[in-house]
Design a protein around this nucleic acid. Structure first.
Lengths: 218, 218
DNA sequence: AAATAAAATTAGCCTTACCTAATTTTATTT
DNA sequence: AAATAAAATTAGGTAAGGCTAATTTTATTT
């Protein structure tokens, strides 16, 4: 079993690895965690001894198979708790991360699976990040937004990046849900506003901010 | 804000104080926590400095007003999480304590209150202990069970001490719920079985174990 | 290539929250 | 009251996980 600190390092390395696919250096980890590089070097030794990561000056830090498994389960717990906090306790989108940061470290053989079931096996967390399943697999991570679609192109809504009630109510009003098809008719160069057609209906104009908040599949 | 360890001491002192109303000595705390008395002395100094407890060789350890407040909120969180684990995640009665032991330390200004609301403001936890309200007040703690009732006496069910599905289903079958009136007609001296009348209906016989699992108000 | 800058590492320290062993204080017997 | 037992306390130590400062290694300029 890993300590709280070890888990935070694993999660951090996992995130850095996902974000860039780049070489992960001690300094990068130090920056990400707000820790001193000297502390990071200590922990790299510890996690290497535990066979959760491997470290090579040229390749940087990499998660081993076990490290990846452990990190994935931390992420699973984090994202499930985020769904819980938002959907069941009525927290706002920007309040849930820090609390989930604590909740994710609670270890019990069946807790994550029970929570998963209780929440109805959600595929994505409130930020649109996929939730790893019990077996470690997870849905595709969507990073393209409506703002990335080319004029004339069409796409399908897969997740939201903003889950404020303001935004969600706005979506409701526009009849946009997960799965809704949207066509980009025009992009106003002045302020990057988007003229879109929702499910083939008459054109509507939305802001750039709006476009960047809708994760889509082309 | 208190550390995890400080919280565990506060909770422990609170429990010892409630259990006996006796003088709480360093050794008593050491025994309860499974720690060395020397460690306890250290922590007593620390908590005294933080004005959460007072310590006097004659009177023993006592919680200050603030210490009581803090301890009560830890207990509140613990018991609310127990209800959640049992009612929402389907855990069994004897699995929830240890998990709640971790969950109780998660601090967020509104988490306990939101959880409380989500659970429907329960008065008692699955062990029949009252859950402190946000203002620190809590319902009466019932410690007498059906097995304590004298022959000829009657009582009202207020909580269950055993929340296994076996027991709960048995209660269902007997039409016993919170509030149900029970009259003790006879006590079989051989094995302490109880002959009872539920809501004035025809007599039924239940075991001593059964009687000890029903918390009642005379 | 040499000089300089940046990154990595080592050495040594700090705090928290434990511990053991030794000592002092307080209670309980005889 | 003296002897003994128990409880409380002190002194010093440990492991985890941070830190700073100094040093070494690696990269980047000039």
């Amino acid at each position: 079993m890993n300590t709280l600190s070890e888990e935070n390092y694993l999660k951090c390395i996992y995130r850095l690895w996902q974000d860039k696919g780049q070489k992960i250096s001690p300094t990068a980890i130090a920056d990400a965690l707000g820790n001193n590089p000297a502390s990071v070097v200590d922990m790299i030794r510890k996690l290497t001894d535990k066979q959760l990561i491997s470290y090579d000056k040229k390749k940087g830090v990499e998660l081993t198979a076990q490290g990846q498994k452990d990190a994935t389960m931390i992420v699973r717990r984090h994202r499930l708790w985020e769904v819980f906090l938002l959907e069941k306790l009525g927290y706002h989108w920007d309040e849930i991360h820090d609390i989930a940061e604590d909740l994710e470290h609670i270890k019990d053989a069946t807790l994550a699976d029970r929570l998963d079931k209780f929440l109805g096996f959600p595929e994505y967390d409130p930020h649109g990040d996929p939730i790893p399943k019990a077996n470690g697999k997870m849905a595709k991570r969507y990073s393209t937004t409506l703002a990335d679609v080319k004029v004339g192109g069409s796409c399908r809504v897969v997740a939201v990046r903003d889950t404020t009630s303001q935004f969600l109510q706005y979506l409701q009003k526009l009849s946009i849900n997960i799965g809704t098809k949207i066509q980009l008719l025009e992009k106003i160069t002045f302020d990057n506003s988007l003229v879109i057609s929702i499910n083939g209906e008459e054109p509507k104009t939305v802001s750039q901010k709006f476009g960047e908040s809708l994760l889509i599949d082309m």
